[in-house]
Design a protein around this nucleic acid. Structure first.
Length: 419
RNA sequence: GUGAGUGUAGCUCAAUGGUAGAGCACUGGUCUGUGGCUCCAGUGGUUGAGGGUUCGAUUCCCUUCAUUCACCCCA
């Protein structure tokens, strides 16, 4: 056994599983394009400041989870911990090429966070994301949520809940934050250690605590929706109305909070009870201030990210895909191999999935290999066949064998195996 | 970063203070050039690593590493 193993929290996707990922990836492309999104691929490595400025200096991700190191020019670079910052950076860098607002983009790819691995959480994990840049209208929120809902529908996942909330904006969030601190101030000693920490740097998070004692205290805490400014209130109302109009079920979760600093107004999560301690398969929200914060023109935007590992974990157990091998060629001896290898090449050029056995192996062994590869047909070529100028074609499920002459070999073969 | 659980054959797991066993997989035979099924046989382990207690440790203790789950946080 090799001593070098994959890093902790990094995982190989091998046949048996990798095929299913491709199926889902294809479905992503298909669905997201239907909703008018275009693919974008951004680099995995970015300047560190892109993330510190967008995600927030004091978030856990930036403080202790990023893979950051000095590039050869001594400037710090980081393996992306999420996708939105890169997309916004690319949007700003190529704005002249994407003049039509709103710009609708989607991506899929690996993200990196140095966390302790756990069910539904890896250090390299994969996200599918979608972003709509350049429109503050709640219509965009609805469009994005309808895509998310439809995608899960189409992939066949049930038992998912769309939870939404509004976090307010720069106008109404600060007063709400104060109101929360005011409320919790009196019961600080009854709140857990973590919540005491949250009290200072992110009091909204207290609402999300899992501890029972904290939960009872948060029960009567002021809700964000009661503190929304007029614009945010109206926006949130339109979003909910829009979802109702499309008959998309959702739940208004008053304590729903987002971890990244850049979120404003609409915030949402697609949650499930079947993921162990994790419950979010997808999450996102509006980030109306981010583009400007990264040095661009004021550009409201909204997006979501979906965790592939979590999605795959929720999908019902998939049977290992059959290899769909059409033909296995069993050459007995070097002569046969040399005669048949060009035939194999010709078959493959015609997109016929085919394999050839090892000429030194006994026929029995080659048959076994063919069986394991789930070949539909086996073409047998030994000395007898070569001297008789006729090959034997065996149908593996019916066990019927037919002889095929050397003249027009390829054509005959094709008409036999594709009839 | 914190806490708990688990490390025995390629895989899934037994067992015992006296140097380990099953099923599956693999190889071969049954079946001389024809796969799946049956039956039979065989290969395969310094019981994660290091140290300690003991006449003796795979079992008990300590350390370490790996892994899993949970907390924090997040998709």
């Amino acid at each position: 056994m090799s001593k070098i193993k994959a890093l902790k929290g990094f995982k190989d996707l091998i046949p048996g599983e990798s095929e299913h990922w491709e199926v889902v990836a294809d479905m992503v492309r298909d669905t997201f394009k239907a909703f008018g999104f275009s693919p974008i691929r951004t680099p995995i490595l970015e300047r560190t400041t892109l993330f510190t400025r967008s995600i927030g200096e004091t978030t856990d991700i930036v403080e202790k989870e990023m893979y950051t190191f000095d590039d050869w020019d001594k400037k710090p670079v980081t393996l992306r911990p999420e996708g939105t910052a890169s997309v916004v950076r690319a949007f700003l860098e190529h704005r002249h090429l994407m003049p039509l607002l709103p710009v609708k983009l989607y991506y899929q790819g690996p993200m990196f966070r140095h966390e302790r691995p756990q069910a539904g959480r890896l250090r390299q994990f994969h996200q599918v994301g979608a972003e709509i840049l350049g429109d503050i209208d709640p219509k965009q929120d609805i469009e994005l949520l309808s895509l998310l809902t439809h995608f899960f529908d189409r992939i066949g996942l049930q038992d998912l809940t769309l939870e939404i909330n509004s976090l307010g904006c720069t106008v109404c969030r600060p007063p709400y934050r104060k109101a929360l601190q005011q409320y919790f101030k009196t019961s600080l000693e009854n709140l857990c250690k973590d919540c005491n920490r949250r009290f200072h740097h992110n009091p909204l998070r207290i609402l999300d605590c899992k501890k029972e004692t904290c939960k009872t205290i948060t029960k009567n805490a002021p809700s964000s929706s009661a503190h929304l400014c007029e614009a945010c209130e109206l926006h949130f109302k339109s979003v909910r109305q829009g979802l109702d109009d499309l008959k998309i079920p959702y739940q208004h979760t008053k304590h729903l909070v987002r971890g990244l600093d850049y979120y404003t107004k609409t915030a949402f999560e697609m949650t499930t009870q079947n993921l162990g301690a994790q419950n979010a398969v997808a999450a996102g929200g509006r980030y109306d201030g981010l583009v400007e914060a990264l040095g661009g023109p004021s550009t409201p935007a909204i997006g979501f990210a979906l965790g592939m590992e979590r999605l795959m974990q929720l999908l019902p157990e998939q049977p290992h895909l059959a290899s769909n091998l059409k033909l296995f060629i069993a050459p007995l001896g070097e002569n046969a191999y040399q005669k048949l290898f060009p035939i194999l090449y010709a078959l493959r050029k015609k997109n016929c999935r085919s394999e050839i056995g090892h000429p030194g192996a006994a026929l029995k062994k080659q048959m076994k290999t063919a069986d394991r590869l789930q070949a539909e047909y086996v073409l047998i070529a030994g000395d007898q066949e070569l001297s008789a100028q006729k090959l034997v074609l065996r149908n593996m499920s019916t066990k019927k064998q037919t002889e095929i002459g050397f003249s027009n070999l390829l054509d005959t073969l094709f008409s036999e195996i594709f009839k």
